[in-house]
Each structure stands twice: as structure tokens, then as C-alpha cells.
Amino acid sequence: MKDTFDENAERKAWMGLLAKAPEGRVAALLDAAMSRPEFTWLRAPEIGSTMVRGRAGGTGAPFNIGEMTVTRCALTLASGEVGHAYIQGRRKSDAEAAALVDALMQGSNASAVREAVLDPLEAERFAAKTARAEKAAATKVEFFTMARGED
């Protein structure tokens, strides 16, 4: 399945990025770039949970680890695009901003939104991940063999 072309890959990528953004960040980037478009709620922001699963042995049968909090919402822009958000945590205003970005990314303004919101989010996320990975790399053990004076 992984080899087939995924027509939703782009949208999956931006929705994932929006879900993992730090608190308030999507709204700040969006509001700095443009005024918010008119919209109506399809589903007002709602807080709930998702049961998170793992696999026995990492690869075997699934089991339930526990839940995580999730906020979701859906809205329609005056121009007709429907935006959805499912984001981690209890963050109604962040869900609203994420759904707006999701809707705007389907409209004529998509490239401006990508540049103003998604690109900086991606860059910040990459920087944070890299910084952590570099600290982990510094704790990697380098074994060396000591010559023993037995022979």
C-alpha cells in the first residue's frame, strides 16, 4: 500500500503539521498574514479523546495503551471550502485556526497560506527535532577496545 500514489498525501501532511503545532502558533502565523475569512461551523470545536494503540512486540497484535485528549471541529468558508481539524490536546481556538488553514489550503489563496503558515511551522518543527536529535547523538556511545597486556 505504501508504494501507491496517495492523492491525499499533501493534505495529510499539512493536517499533521497543524495538529502538532505548539499552542497558539497557527493562529499567530495566520493572523499575522491575513484577516480571517468568514465561515460557518459544521461542527463547533469539541474536546474528546482518542484511544491510542500499540502492537505487542512492536509489530504484532494491537492493544490499547491509553487515551489522549483531542480537539476537533469542522467549518465551511463563505467561498465553499470545508476545513477540518483534529488536533492533540484541549485547544478550541487552535482547532479553529487549524480548520481555517485546512480550508484556505484548498482555495485560491493556498500558496500564500503555505508560505505564511505552513512553511514557518515546518521550519520550526524541523529545527526543534534536529536540536533534540543532535543532543541524542552527543550521547551515543563510541566503544573502543583497550589493548590488554596479556600476550
Binding site: I47, G48, M51, V52, R53, G54, R55, T69, R132, A133
Partner: peptide, 18 residues
């Protein structure tokens, strides 16, 4: 909390290991 659903099993092989 209302339950929205269950996740796909997480892929620990793709963990960004600390």
C-alpha cells in the same frame, strides 16, 4: 470525554529516539 475513535497502532520503529 467523548471518545472520537481509536488510533492506528503507533509505529515505534519510526520513533525519534531520545
Amino acid at each position: 470525554l467523548p471518545r472520537f475513535g481509536a488510533s492506528d497502532p503507533v509505529d515505534t520503529g519510526a520513533m525519534a529516539c531520545d
